[in-house]
Write a protein that binds this DNA or RNA. Structure first.
Lengths: 216, 216
DNA sequence: ACCGACCTACCGACCATTCGGTAGGCAGAC
DNA sequence: GTCTGCCTACCGAATGGTCGGTAGGTCGGT
């Protein structure tokens, strides 16, 4: 009795896990943690609900795996783009924004999950607390370096500017995900350009530079 | 935490509705739309679940009523503060931020609901689309007026600056709601101060002014 | 007498998770 | 080669609980 090959395909562990993570990312982005059921994710993948739990022990473990996976992927991408060179804050954020503009579902996943995670009982509560602390810290350090290089006006307190830029990116992402979408990367670039201009540097990035492309 | 349940107490319609709206706002802020059950809200108020549905016909109607109520309350407050005078954008946003700093649950409600509402199937999807359009429009108009008065650098495109400021406030709110919280109003004020300074106006709002209090 | 606030009882659907199993594939013994 | 034992991928059924919503009644204030 040969089993019919409709959807009952057996896959190696890593491959199936990857499938599940992708499907789960989409589902959690659309309807959030509480609004997404394991059955939702399972049917997207073409697996039974217990089949899903064979790979991730619980719903909480699943969403944490999704978030950590995506963070790691981002880090890998940025490392790859900037190899051993250490980029300016402006370049760094512009590249990140351009990358984000190509994957709205991922941006939505983080927007929704970050907001949901404000609840101390949310599985990703600590994850996002740590994440924002880390991001602000890293960004502040880069800002300080750029200030020493004369790329950013030394009037700014690095930690404060870091918070502001993170806030701006988050807020722009939210509006970019809505209809009508705002020109996320364009607006970010124009804001960043003023940071360079204020430092009195004849930088290549000018405010409202004609050649700037807007994102999809 | 939970309103004490006085057995068999019957309240007039408007009063009970108000109680329910308050409790629902808290619940939706903490766990979002999908994460909140009608039973949660009902027990907070001290009413049975069908008792709640006697006042609001469905969960969807409840969250919409909560959001619209709070928007109307905000509008009433701003009208009251600024009476017939029409304030500058900077004053307007600073007052709004100061008010928000006193009610984190409400800020969280909007942060969470706005993110959730990105899902087209969310009951507040259209509500937030319209809301953001309206806010940007109103803010852009005020910015244009301030530019004519010389309060804001005319380099800025009003619509773009409106998007940026809304994004900044949203993003700062998110970080302010997390631990450790950022100095939401302080950071906003410092950003706004630069708008005035760039216009060459000796405004009353100075960046990092010593008397500025941080929030809550 | 009746309106409206609110109750108990209940429905059908869905929830995450558990359990007990089945089948494919691979390793080594014969 | 093929038998055997075991690991892994996965399923069907059922767990106990919660979900939003409905039906029909009770009871107090006017």
């Amino acid at each position: 009795m040969v089993a019919e090959r409709i959807e009952g395909l057996r896959l190696p562990r890593t491959q199936r896990r990857q499938q599940i993570l992708t499907a789960a990312a989409q589902a959690f982005a659309e309807t959030g943690f509480h609004g997404t059921s394991l059955a939702d994710v399972a049917t997207r993948v073409g697996v039974s609900q217990p089949g899903l739990l064979h790979h991730f022990p619980s719903k909480q473990a699943l969403i944490l795996a999704v978030l950590e996976e995506r963070d790691a992927e981002d880090a890998r991408y940025l490392d790859e783009v900037f190899q051993q060179a250490d980029p300016s804050v402006v370049d760094w954020l512009v590249v990140l924004c351009a990358k984000n503009a190509q994957r709205p579902e991922l941006v939505q996943l983080y927007t929704v999950a970050a907001a949901e995670s404000l609840d101390p009982a949310h599985p990703a509560h600590e994850f996002f607390q740590r994440r924002y602390q880390r991001i602000r810290q890293v960004l502040a350090a880069r800002i300080e370096l750029d200030q020493q290089k004369g790329l950013i006006d030394p009037v700014h307190v690095p930690e404060d500017l870091a918070s502001e830029l993170v806030a701006l990116m988050d807020g722009l992402q939210l509006q970019w995900l809505m209809r009508p979408p705002v020109d996320m990367c364009g607006l970010l670039r124009r804001r960043l350009a003023r940071l360079s201009a204020a430092a009195g540097v004849a930088a290549g990035v000018a405010a409202g530079h004609g050649g700037d492309r807007s994102d999809d």
